[in-house]
């Protein structure tokens, strides 16, 4: 949490801050975990005890006023039904598995071995959502796997299927101009970029027409793997802050976030999603992909979902 000074309260004069610092209180967090009554008792020995007591009371009331509004279940349900949209990805199997598509405000993770169809689903979702919702899509690419050609293929199919629109080529061009692609090759630039996205959203507000509705990170594990090790706590904390930032972006700006993750094989030979136990809690929805190399059909199963039954299966053909 922020230092007390950052609260910018007029009552926080130099003497007050010095007194608090002498008691080991520097940040808001320190203040909150400190026993306020002991602190108040300590002020008795000071010359300016009245001012100090008043300062403590003011900080407390200021912090109290900062909490967000309580919402009850009924309000949350109303929110969900009225303002949260479901974004269809265009992959029938996936959409039926997820109850319609990607949900705004949630983090959906695709897990699978190499060439199992993760990037294909990402590209297809990007083109489908850019085409139908006329919204901006951010595509953070960490493994050079974005293919504009493939996007164009998907969009061509979409344009052909919707006969009523006249200006097919124009629609394709508009959709393609709504997909923003970034190359990111390490976790630091990834975090940087996410903060930039956040600050640009803040200034932009909720402008409905050109709003970002989908954020794709393909893949998260490529940037995390080089820094993650048992003895390196820094790497671990970077991974967690990446997850937190993604979740925060998703929730505060109601964006659907789609990320991909790799598979690792443990000592017993069973394969499991990469990045370990602490990452497991980050995505709201987790899907396991595998591809049959002969038929080119991608099988999906639901590993984790906050509101649906897990272990359901679906399949998807990867051919155009």
């Amino acid at each position: 949490m922020a230092p007390l000074r950052a609260l910018n309260l007029p009552i926080l004069t130099r003497q007050v801050l010095q007194f608090l610092a002498a008691n080991g209180i520097l940040s808001v967090e320190d203040f909150l975990v400190h026993d306020i009554y002991t602190l108040a008792a300590r002020t008795e020995h000071q010359t300016n005890s009245e001012v100090l007591k008043q300062a403590i009371a003011e900080i407390l009331s200021f912090i109290d006023s900062q909490h967000s509004r309580w919402l009850n279940g009924a309000q949350l349900l109303e929110n969900l039904q009225q303002t949260v949209h479901v974004l269809p990805t265009g992959c029938e199997g996936l959409d039926s598995l997820l109850g319609g598509g990607l949900l705004e405000g949630t983090l959906t993770e695709l897990v699978g071995p190499s060439a199992s169809g993760k990037t294909q689903i990402c590209l297809r979702a990007a083109s489908h959502i850019a085409y139908h919702s006329q919204a901006a899509v951010m595509y953070l690419d960490t493994c050079n796997s974005f293919s504009s050609k493939r996007i164009a293929q998907f969009l061509n199919v979409l344009a052909k299927s919707s006969i009523k629109s006249k200006d097919q080529q124009g629609n394709i061009e508009r959709a393609m101009k709504g997909i923003f692609h970034y190359n990111v090759f390490d976790v630091y630039s990834m975090l940087d970029l996410l903060y930039q996205i956040e600050s640009s959203m803040q200034t932009q507000g909720k402008n409905e027409s050109s709003r970002v509705r989908l954020l794709i990170v393909d893949s998260v594990s490529s940037v995390i793997t080089p820094i993650l090790s048992g003895s390196n706590l820094q790497g671990h904390s970077l991974m967690i802050s990446l997850g937190v930032v993604l979740k925060k972006l998703a929730l505060e700006y109601s964006i659907a976030v789609l990320i991909t993750n790799h598979i690792v094989v443990d000592k017993t030979g069973t394969s499991k999603p990469a990045l370990g136990e602490s990452w497991k809690s980050m995505p709201h929805v987790r899907l396991l992909l595998s591809r049959d190399p002969v038929s080119n059909i991608c099988d999906m199963s639901l590993l984790k979902h906050t509101s649906m039954v897990c272990d359901q299966q679906a399949s998807l053909s990867l051919n155009s």
Binding site: A130, I151, A152, I179, Y182, S200
Partner: peptide, 8 residues
């Protein structure tokens, strides 16, 4: 943002 390119 810096470094972005559209699919087009």
């Amino acid at each position: 943002l810096a470094g972005a390119k559209t699919a087009w």
